[in-house]
Amino acid sequence: MTKKPLGKKHLVASFACGAVLFSGLSAAAADTSVSAMISKATFFAFGERQAAPAPTGSNGAKSPAALNYNGTTYVPVRAIGDMLDVPVYWDAANNAISTGSAKTIVKSADGTVHGSIDLMEEKGGVRVKVSLMDIPAGPHGIHVHQMPIKNNDFATALGHFNPTKHEHGHNNPQGAHVGDFTKNLTADKNGKAVQEFFLEGANLQPDSPMSIAGRSIIVHAGADDQKSDPAGDSGDRIAGGNVPK
């Protein structure tokens, strides 16, 4: 019987698991931090893009950057992902890695986890797959907001992501925001919401003005009327999460 070959996402995920396990054991055994070496012009430390290393030596050669990772080997995971053309995302709030899609962990203000949202860049926009539980039954406005959530305080997300300077809502003649979803998120009587959306014009590229990476997604208490500026009269912010980058 022949075995099915591993795909790129499986290879990156396997490397990530092995790297995290190895680095954790190494740190525990040596009681010290783990350093990783990478020589690419663009590199990451603690999930954040960093500047290239400064020229060193008499000939002005650039030396590889030694990145102190405090027990995690996340930089090599990024490098492997680049080589295999599989995107790797870092969720700083939850110290989590996701490969292939940017997985957003959704929580309420008290820190209770209600599920996740997977975001995948496609031609023309970003595919959004929502899978939540234990939220109030009925329709809920859902939007991408300008800033990441800090300390579970949804007010820190600020307003909707709106780089094109439009008004809110897909039924608004002056709309819509890039962060406006085309329809409401609807939870069933058991509080479960599984739904798919497409954010046209958005992307997950780190340097793009249309990127939603590093921002946040907020779920509101009520329905979005798709026309009232600035938020569709959708009520309080009841849950949300930061989009990895």
Rank of each mutant, 00 (worst) to 15 (best):
T2L: 11
K3E: 10
P5T: 06
L6S: 12
L6C: 02
L6K: 12
G7V: 13
K9Y: 07
K9T: 15
K9A: 12
H10A: 15
H10R: 10
V12A: 01
V12D: 01
V12P: 01
A13C: 06
S14P: 00
S14W: 05
F15K: 02
F15A: 15
A16Q: 07
C17D: 10
G18D: 08
A19G: 15
A19P: 01
A19Y: 02
V20P: 00
L21H: 10
F22W: 10
G24F: 05
G24A: 14
G24H: 07
L25V: 04
S26N: 07
A27M: 12
A27D: 00
A29N: 06
A30V: 05
D31Y: 06
D31K: 14
D31R: 13
T32G: 09
V34R: 01
V34K: 00
V34D: 00
V34S: 04
S35E: 03
S35C: 11
A36Y: 02
A36K: 03
I38K: 01
K40N: 09
T42Y: 04
F43Q: 07
F43P: 00
F44Y: 15
F46D: 07
F46M: 05
F46Y: 11
F46G: 13
G47I: 14
G47M: 09
E48I: 10
E48T: 14
R49T: 14
Q50V: 08
A52W: 02
P53T: 14
P53L: 10
A54M: 09
A54V: 12
P55W: 08
P55A: 13
T56H: 03
T56G: 09
G57E: 04
G60D: 03
G60M: 05
A61E: 08
K62R: 15
K62C: 05
K62L: 09
S63H: 05
P64Y: 12
A65I: 03
A66T: 07
A66Q: 05
L67C: 06
L67I: 15
N68P: 00
N70H: 12
G71R: 07
G71W: 06
G71C: 08
T73L: 13
T73V: 09
T73M: 15
T73C: 14
V75L: 05
P76I: 03
P76W: 09
P76D: 08
V77Q: 02
R78K: 11
R78Q: 12
G81N: 08
G81H: 07
M83F: 09
M83Y: 08
L84K: 03
L84P: 01
D85K: 11
D85A: 14
Y89M: 08
Y89S: 05
W90Q: 01
W90K: 01
W90A: 13
W90C: 06
D91Q: 10
D91N: 15
D91R: 11
A92L: 09
A93H: 03
A93I: 04
A93R: 08
A93F: 05
N94L: 08
N95D: 12
A96E: 12
A96Q: 15
A96L: 14
I97Y: 01
I97M: 13
I97L: 15
S98D: 03
S98E: 03
T99Q: 02
T99E: 05
T99M: 06
G100E: 04
A102R: 09
K103D: 07
K103T: 15
K103F: 05
T104L: 06
I105E: 04
I105P: 00
I105F: 05
V106Y: 04
V106L: 09
S108L: 11
A109T: 12
D110I: 14
G111N: 08
G111A: 13
G111D: 07
T112F: 11
T112H: 06
